[in-house]
Design a protein around this nucleic acid. Sequence first.
DNA 1: CCTACCGATCGGTAGG
DNA 2: CCTACCGATCGGTAGG
Lengths: 199, 199
Amino acid sequence: MAASRRPISKDEPNRRAEILRAASRLFAEKGYAATTIRDIAKAVDMQSGSPFYHFKSKHDMLLAVVLEGIETISRAVSEAAAGGGTPRQVFEAMLLAHLEQLLADDGRHFAATLLHESKHLDAEAHAALVERKDRYEGLWQKALANLKRAGDIGDDSHVARLFLLGGLNWTVQWYRPDGVCSVPVIARQISSLLLKKAH
Amino acid sequence: MAASRRPISKDEPNRRAEILRAASRLFAEKGYAATTIRDIAKAVDMQSGSPFYHFKSKHDMLLAVVLEGIETISRAVSEAAAGGGTPRQVFEAMLLAHLEQLLADDGRHFAATLLHESKHLDAEAHAALVERKDRYEGLWQKALANLKRAGDIGDDSHVARLFLLGGLNWTVQWYRPDGVCSVPVIARQISSLLLKKAH
DNA sequence: CCTACCGATCGGTAGG
DNA sequence: CCTACCGATCGGTAGG
């Protein structure tokens, strides 16, 4: 019975997070520039001026979405990398972790915004993002070097790393949750395409 | 001496093409939604209402850019595929052709717009594009099947094709014309990453 | 292709 | 967090 349309208590500490989730979905689907504050407000059942109570500008919303995106992926892949095992096992765990963050229901709009809308950040925010991205890509460079040392891959150059991450990131464009391929299946196919057959 | 700012004759048959070139660059750099008709007009030294003498709407400009993008790439890769040779040679020629169109000075903004701004097309235009894209991807599916038959690759599944094209398309994000890697070098590294060593 | 303009929409704010 | 609003900008058009 009680409340009708806002079942949560007055001091909702997650109202800000709700706005970010809605914003990430709209930024991913329509693009940052084509998304209006009014779109976002409507998605969380607010009036058009109210999001500015939580964020000082639309640009700040984008920055928050993008940073949460890179942070979430970095954390997941770091943990996978720290799991231990052979270079091949580590690599496959990282592959799966990256794809899960990219394609999972909850995080995929954050990832898509990170990948496609970062160009709308101002210079300062963009620099902060590049720093985090470089750190993240370092994880992959290390994993590829270990694969190469173990003889599991022929090439661990920059081009190889960029091509790999590009192919992974592009899955956002074609993956459908209701499709035939599950995320683990995709991960396995990609790894077997790149790695030499186990002896 | 003669004319000052418009050195070309009155009946310039390429004025429309100039607008498209400017539009493709702006769409690629700032995104479709963030690009204004006034931006485009200024880039070709026109007044803000004048582009509408050549295109009936901003949407039509986007459609023209996107169609020229897919047409140019399709033609180049088709010709490479028709060049003949072993499956491996054909594949490497296609790889190089695709990358050249994607990264070359003249076509790269058309390609980038095609890859990242197609979501702003209306339903009808989008359907027309999907049809052409499917036809294009068919070229790659055939090439991968031939590679598989020849034993040059382990997997010719849909995932393999999508991963490959994704990795190629992502080069747009990181390739710099003034960087250390030339386009043929990139093509060769990618092909050696995917194909088994020649016996 | 330019001039002059319109209606709509947008990000953001004051004041409560 | 809502109400009411502002100044700026945008896509597009009429009329030449």
